[in-house]
Structures are given as C-alpha cells and as structure tokens.
Design a protein around this nucleic acid. Structure first.
Lengths: 186, 186
DNA sequence: CCTAATTTTAGTACTAGCTACTACGACCAG
DNA sequence: CTGGTCGTAGTAGCTAGTACTAAAATTAGG
C-alpha cells in the first residue's frame, strides 16, 4: 500500500517540478504533505536537481538559445550547397513556430528558410534581397520537415534570380521567386 | 586618482556582469584584482543583485519570454490597430537582426514585421498568408526604427488584399502586397 | 609632511537551500 | 516475531551570499 503511495507521490512531485520549477523543497514538502527529508529522498531517487540547479540550467539554456539564433546565418539546416548554382535546406517545424490557435506555422518561418537559403547560394561577399514573390500553397503544421530547394535561374549583372520550392513530406507547400542584389565593399 | 579608478572598476564590473552573469563575487574579485568585499560594496552601490538573484531573474525572464513568443502574434510593437482596416507597428533593429559582415538587417525581419501586421489587422479568427510580393528598396541598418503601415485595400470572399509600407526615419525601405486567406473552424 | 577623508580589505555572525550522512520508529508481509 | 521498506529526524558541511564592524591602506588637502 505504502509502496503504491510512494510512486504516486513521486509522480506528483515530477509534475509539480515541471509546472513550477521555482518551488523549494520546503514548499514541495508542504504541498505533498510529507517531510522535507522525504522530498529530498524522492528528488535523489528521481534525479531531480535542487532548486538552484534547476534555475541555473533554465538560465543557461535561455542564454545559449539567444546566442544560437544570433549566430545563425541560415534558418534551417544546410543539406547541400553548390555555390552559385543551387542549395537545399531542411527546417523542422516546432511548436513555437506555429499559431497556438490553428497549429499552423507562421508564414515568416517558411519565408525565412527560403530567403536565407536564396542568400546562401549566391557566390558574392555581400547580398540583400531586392524583390520577392511568394506563394503559400498549403498550410504547414507542427512536426513537418520542410525541404527547401533553391536554384539560381538567371544572373544579370549584380542581380540574381533565384527560385525556391519548399516541400513537406508529401507535397509542395511554398514557392518563391527572389531577386537578390549583390555588391562589393566600396 | 583612486576616485577615478573606482569608477573605472565599477564600469568594468557592470560590463563583466552583463557579459557573463554567471560569475560569483569571488571570480569577479579575481578578475578585477580586488577583494571580495570591494566587489560586494560595488554591487551594493551599483544595485547589482547577487548571483542567485541574477540567475533567477534570467530564468523567470526566459520562462515568460517563451510564453510571450508563443503569445506574440505580431513581430514588432503594435502602435495602432483598426481591425479590418489598417494598422501600424514599430520594430527597432537590434544588432542580432543584422548580418555581422554588412550590418544590414536580414530580410526576414522586415518581412516578419510586415507579414504579422498584415495578419493582425484581418478581422477573422484564423488566417494565413497566401501570396506575397515584396520589394526591398533600401538596406536597413542597426538602430533603425521601422514603422510599418498596413492597409486592407480590397476584400473578396475570404481573401484579403493588404498593402504594407515600411519606412525608417528618413525614407521608405520596404513595400509588400499580401493576399491573406481566412477561414472559420470547420 | 602631517592629518583627514576616502577607499579597500579583513573578519565575524547570520541566512537560504541545499548535500551527505546516520539513526530511529512505524508498518507490513511472510 | 523478525526483516525489509518507508518516512521522519537530526547533524555536519557547503556555497554564495547579506549585514555589519573594524582596521589598514591610499589619497587629497592644507
């Protein structure tokens, strides 16, 4: 009987910590109606770190997250790249990229993948987007793996005409035409 | 002389804490070649909270930040909104939005502001982007305040035609035409 | 150069929120 | 009734501090 109780309590503990990571052992003990020592033992058994560790990890995670967004020149993962010709990138849609209500991906993530890929395949030190024509064909959902294929179809002076087609597992979801403009440092 | 030194040291302290918030007083003392007590006094004077407080605030911030990104339907700050008609949003370009090399803003930030604003002004429970035509007129730099003005110019069934014009302080930098598609839950 | 003020360092007592450990009593099953 | 699991209790020790007092060092002013 007590054996079962323990498991239930530990389950509750896991839930509590997940929901409210800022609770001290003392507060957890009061919540679960046991002594502090029991909480500590449970944490030890379950491998739950102490309050300070939990908070520190959250803060560290938040920091590295910010940095990784900063340093990322390409949205998504570059799978293949032939500079001056074509490129392929992959982006997995996570739940923070979609609208809470509809679970449909925000348009700018799909755009960002295509746009940054279009930029990446251009063989020039610096370039910016000049013009873009986009067509969203099918809504994209959480879990979808978006594969964007970009191709330079024409080059005229410092202007590059790039086509990007994005597919999920089953169909084409997005299409874009970019005119990218490059320039050398003056 | 020492009066100046103190100010310099406190300035260094502020920078250090800003850059690496995970340093203890002891580590800071070693870095700045003074005793722990001096660091504590400086923190007291400067109103810098202790390590644990700093970390806790970061973690709390990270938590609310995750939620606010989820909840953030609009990139930038909504300044004005007339549902079904028009809207204005402001986005300040920070250094993590630009290319390190050229200091020019990545195209997708400008797009995201416009796209999310176009979406926000539509008076429907759910909508997605269908088609977009973009024109980047002038490169945008760090510090620029982008003011995007969106206007619904035509509505045909569940299709909304939206124009967005984005200016910085001096000129129009971006222009977009969107066709947004709305739908009711089925 | 000496004194006064400022700045820095040293040290103590106390705190939260723990870990790691030992010890004891309750309960329950075979 | 004896062994094993559980929960509880309590101690020592830790980190990274606060809050305080006091002394030493430095510096500026006269």
């Amino acid at each position: 009987m007590a054996y079962v109780k323990k498991k239930i309590r530990q389950q509750l503990l896991i839930e509590q910590v997940k929901e409210k990571p800022f609770l001290t052992d003392e507060e957890l003990a009061k919540l679960l109606q046991v002594s502090i020592q029991t909480i500590r033992l449970d944490r030890l058994e379950l491998g739950i770190p102490e309050l300070r560790e939990r908070i520190r990890k959250m803060a560290e995670h938040a920091q590295t997250k910010v940095k990784s967004i900063e340093g990322r020149e390409v949205i998504g993962e570059l799978i293949d790249l032939e500079l001056g010709k074509s490129g392929i990138s992959l982006l997995r849609i996570t739940d923070d990229m979609v609208f809470a209500k509809s679970q449909v991906a925000r348009g700018h993530y799909v755009f960002s993948q295509a746009n940054s890929l279009a930029l990446a395949i251009i063989d020039a030190p610096m370039a910016v987007t000049g013009v873009a024509n986009l067509k969203y064909k099918v809504p994209v959902h959480v879990g979808d793996k978006l594969i964007a294929k970009a191709e330079i179809i024409r080059q005229r002076g410092n202007k590059y005409f790039v086509w990007v087609k994005t597919r999920n597992e089953t169909q084409e979801v997005f299409r874009a035409k970019f005119i990218m403009v490059s320039w050398d440092e003056k």
